[in-house]
């Protein structure tokens, strides 16, 4: 059974009063849950959070499922998201994704055997001028080549 840390619960309580409605706190609280639950939000966590926030489960679940930044499945330690929208594709993002998948021997969206890497293709991350790019957990890595991308991920491991 998932439970937030005391600091996390404190955070949720603060967020509940930060905005004009309690409901607004769902997104920040889900981010907190995701942070403390190894990068994803489990159904148990939704039950727990809706109890903590005193909001219907359906509301929390609706928000959770609507936004792409919440992971509904477990992810690896490094969540590598490669932008594959138009400008990035022109600059070889698809080839880069394939290269990364081959290098780390992992299928798209799945966690690698060692639990380290998940590689997903995502839509525009607002870094079109520095394509191709990837986001590893919270940080952007831009103007990548196949070699530099692999090197970056390996260094982060």
């Amino acid at each position: 059974m998932f439970k937030l840390s005391p600091a996390g619960e404190e955070f949720v309580k603060k967020e509940l009063t930060r905005y004009e409605t309690k409901r607004s706190a769902i997104i920040p609280c889900l981010f907190k849950v995701q942070e403390e639950n190894k990068g994803w939000v489990s159904p148990e966590a939704v039950t727990y959070l809706s109890g903590l926030m005193d909001l219907p489960e359906a509301w929390v679940n609706e928000v959770l499922n609507f936004y792409t930044m919440f992971n509904k499945e477990p992810v690896g330690k490094l969540h590598v998201q490669v932008c594959c929208n138009i400008s990035c594709c022109m600059n070889g993002a698809r080839e880069l994704t394939k290269h990364l998948k081959d290098t780390f021997n992992v299928k798209e969206g799945e966690v690698s055997a060692d639990g380290n890497v998940t590689i997903t293709r995502v839509e525009c991350l607002g870094s079109c001028g520095t394509a191709p790019m990837m986001q590893v957990n919270d940080n952007y890595y831009e103007n990548l080549t196949h070699e530099s991308a692999v090197k970056t991920i390996k260094e982060l491991m």
Binding site: P43, V46, T47, S50, E57, A58, W59, V60, N61, E62, N65, F66
Partner: peptide
């Protein structure tokens, strides 16, 4: 609630 988005949207209840 209606979960997910686009043509993947589905009406449903939360499991619990």
């Amino acid at each position: 609630g209606i979960f997910n988005r686009g043509d993947r949207s589905e009406v449903g209840t939360f499991k619990d």
